[in-house]
Amino acid sequence: MLEVEDIKKIIPHRSPMLLIDRVDKLVPGVSAIGYKGVTYNEPFFQGHYPDYPVMPGVLIIEAIAQTGAVALMSSEEYKSKLVFFGGINKAKFRNQVKPGCILRLETELIKIKGPIGIGQGKAYVEDVLAAEAEFTFIIK
């Protein structure tokens, strides 16, 4: 299991943009399952929305992608690289994520060819699907 300090050794994200707290299952270069505990103290809740706090969908997708980045950058081949979004496809938001939720982030890297790859992921609260997307990533 990887905790926050372990994750920070793999990906360059830091607070407030580090959106995963731990990774329980990891197959380097293939897949990862991570978790994000969503608290009322998240900086985005100050404006989204003060009277009805909901985690922005784009940040849920970012958390999915960061989990995929842990899978990618845990591989020896990509350890010293950076990974960026190249595109987001088929994003669907199924349920709201509110303070107190624990997001389970499941990501799989489907294809990597040269510096371009495709991944897919889903975010769950308990066993209820909150969001899903396919993403293209660029390795630098």
Rank of each mutant, 00 (worst) to 15 (best):
K36L: 03
D127G: 02
A69T: 01
V27C: 00
L19S: 04
I102G: 02
V27W: 02
L59P: 06
F137P: 11
P50F: 13
H48F: 10
G68R: 11
A63L: 08
V27M: 05
R14S: 08
Y49A: 02
G100P: 09
V58N: 07
I116G: 02
K81Q: 15
L19D: 07
T67S: 09
I64A: 06
G86L: 02
K140D: 15
N89V: 00
K140Q: 14
I139K: 11
I88Q: 02
R22L: 08
V4I: 15
N89R: 14
G121A: 04
V125G: 06
I7P: 12
K140C: 01
L82Q: 15
S15N: 14
F85I: 02
G117R: 01
G34N: 09
I102W: 05
E5D: 11
Y35E: 01
G47R: 12
F135L: 04
M1A: 13
L19R: 14
K90Y: 04
A133P: 06
K140Y: 13
A133G: 05
P99Y: 06
E134S: 09
P28G: 01
L82F: 15
V38W: 11
V125C: 06
Y78E: 01
S80E: 15
N95M: 11
V125M: 08
I102V: 14
M1Q: 12
S15C: 07
F137Y: 14
P115R: 15
I118C: 01
G114D: 08
V38H: 12
K9W: 01
K92A: 02
Q120Y: 00
Y78I: 08
S75P: 00
Y35M: 07
A63P: 04
V30R: 14
F45G: 02
K8N: 09
G29P: 09
P12D: 05
P115T: 07
Q120P: 00
A71W: 13
K9Q: 14
I61L: 13
M73L: 15
E108Y: 13
E106S: 11
S75I: 00
K25P: 01
H13V: 01
E62A: 01
I7M: 09
T136A: 02
Y78K: 12
K92P: 04
I102T: 15
L82S: 12
D24W: 00
Y35P: 07
M1T: 12
I116L: 14
E106K: 15
K98P: 05
D24A: 07
K9P: 04
P99Q: 05
M17F: 15
L2R: 06
M55H: 05
Q66C: 00
I10V: 14
A91S: 13
I61V: 14
S75M: 00
F85V: 04
M73W: 13
I112A: 06
D21L: 03
K8H: 08
Y49G: 07
V4D: 03
Q120G: 01
K111T: 00
L82T: 14
I112M: 07
